[in-house]
Nucleic acid binder design. Structure first.
Lengths: 344, 344
DNA sequence: GATTAGCACTCTTTTGTGCTGAGTGCTAAC
DNA sequence: GTTAGCACTCAGCACAAAAGAGTGCTAATC
């Protein structure tokens, strides 16, 4: 048996996938004999379909039903058969203008828009730095027992941390600490703050070694927080719209995984997506998340700055409308890139 | 017909509710005649149950099924029959110590613990001030085009906002702005910053009126953000465990409402809860949220500081284990109060 | 007068049966 | 190589019958 699909088989496979995506029902030979421009009788199609089944591209749920695409079939469709639909999305710009300050809110909004547009579940990860560097640190007294440390990281991410004081610090001491710490730490990331450096800083700020430790911890915290992949989802209940995912067990597992965002970070790490398009498609078990085995995931990468990427994507049933989804993501990817370029 | 329940009727109602909470099945007269210590035959129970039904405390889903509690029945149970179980929860303290800085993370963790402990959905709102006041404002130059405004609000909430600059500001100007704005704004909330004040500030910082406007906007934003009731949920998929909520329509609506947190804020506003215990129980349609009509909600109030409250609670099926839930919430409430007192 | 046993009745749930329609695989003819 | 024809398979549906749970009522009992 040839392992390569001749043109006719491709056309038939295309017809099967296309039809199944639309209807969600197994598709039979009669349907296809009408659907394609091949003008073949259903009997011929049946023969070809038997071949396709043997080759693993399609399968029948039971004897007297039509055929549905296998994961391999979807894969072939996505890689070789489908052509993207250019799909316009509402302009993100309008959404983004609202509040550019809270990255979190912004990401949520983009995610929501994606979910509403596609009717699938959307997912988006915050931009990820290898390891953020400290831009500067600012200490301000709040009251006798507390110090506010404003930590500005590369990429203009500001974090606030409160430092508890054993005893009050006078403004001179604070000024000094500010100076010492900034001199030493400027432009460094967690890895670069080593024991030697810490020793030096402490020796230059005698009497306050404890506070210095606390501050360093706060910085490490801030960087760690920002470096951890944060993932936001939207439209999680959309998956309930697709009957094949809607039995109690599957839906529960799925929604659980979506709520428990930890499991999704794996998915949103920068991966091996198509160099050219920045798009990656996971079909069924290809995704590195057990709970998603009956779903497909399409992700795209956005570039915030040189070396700073984030991802966003769509989670839906295997029979999602890949053409539309890929089109939508590409469109959004373009929009985001434009916006970030402009902003610089 | 007496509208008051004699002791025997109460016992029978108690038995019905108790049994139904456990099994989720309508309970029949035979079951009860064994269950209670009343030693009555099923026939007698039947007579009493007919009375209870007529009085509206229980109802039968159909002729040949047993009885289930009506909302009124639940209400009576909650108000008069049940006794709280003191339910120990994992010590929150351990969780809280981790990272006290990000309120958000903390609330999420408490919510998660609640959900895991109870097997219901949990919900928690951030502490709510009437309207936050500004404690101080600090402007720091980031680069030629950007100013970082650190806004410290009453209750030690720090917010960062970036201000775009039309042209660079020298450090002297920034110092001056800092001084002027802090002098005028200290201790005020959004309502108190009026046009007259704004005019004065602008006149005292000539040449920078635009920046002043931007900063004021940022402050207003920060206060608004913090004042909006923020609500976090956890264990949303737990509701799928209860068959009566698990038909596609109901579950979808419910999960939708839980994702769309706006609808929940109503629930989490400080309400008319029991003065003494701080606990409020909404049964079915008593909750001010349409989607929750088949659920019950139990909320508790925690006090962060004088006049500063937040709420947390449990959303579950009407037949939730009220005794356990109330016990759990009371326990947690105590723990939280202790922790916040300690912290002061 | 309250309680209980007994029984007919109701209604859901389960089980079983037969039918239908969609779709296949195979064979033989074109 | 393609197609028409036909027997066969199997899920899905409708319908009926049976089982089971529980009630309400009546008449007997304490």
């Amino acid at each position: 048996m040839d392992t390569v699909l001749d043109e006719r088989k491709q056309k038939i496979l295309y017809a099967v996938v296309k039809n199944y995506l639309e209807t969600g029902e197994p598709v039979g030979s009669r349907t296809i004999s009408k659907f394609t421009d091949l003008n073949l009788s259903s009997a011929t199609i049946r023969n070809e379909m038997a071949d396709l089944e043997e080759m693993g591209y399609i399968l029948s749920p039971h004897t007297s039903a039509g055929r549905i695409p296998s994961d391999k079939g979807y894969r072939f469709y996505v890689d070789s058969l489908m052509r993207d639909k250019v799909k316009e999305v509402d302009s993100v710009k309008d959404v983004l203008i609202e509040k550019t300050d809270r990255v979190e809110t912004l990401l949520q909004q983009v995610a929501k828009m994606l979910a509403v547009n596609t009717n699938y579940t959307s997912i988006i990860s915050a931009p990820q730095y290898r390891s953020r560097k400290l831009k500067f640190l600012q200490l301000t007294p709040v009251d006798d027992e507390k110090l506010l440390a404003v930590i500005l990281l590369e990429g203009n991410i500001a974090k606030n941390k409160f430092i508890s004081l054993a005893q009050p610090l006078d403004s001179e001491a604070i000024l000094k600490l500010n100076l010492v710490l900034n001199t030493f730490l400027n432009g460094l990331n967690t890895d670069e703050i080593n024991l030697g450096l810490i020793q030096k800083m402490k020796s230059q700020s005698e009497g306050y070694t404890e506070v210095v430790s606390d501050i360093l911890d706060a910085i490490a915290d801030a960087i760690a927080e920002e470096d951890s992949v944060r993932v936001y989802t939207s439209g999680t209940t959309n998956i309930l719209k697709y009957p094949e995912l809607n039995d109690t067990r599957t839906a529960g597992e799925l929604l659980g995984a979506l709520e428990e965002k930890d499991s999704l970070t794996e998915l949103m790490k920068k991966g091996t997506e198509d160099e050219e398009t920045g798009i990656q498609v996971y079909i069924g078990e290809e995704a590195p998340v057990e709970a998603l085995k009956d779903c497909s995931v399409v992700t795209a990468t956005y570039k915030l700055d040189e070396g700073v990427y984030g991802k966003f994507g769509i989670i839906g049933p295997k029979r999602m409308d890949y053409e539309r989804v890929v089109g939508t993501l590409k469109n959004l990817m373009g929009q985001l890139d434009d916006i970030f370029k402009e902003k610089k």
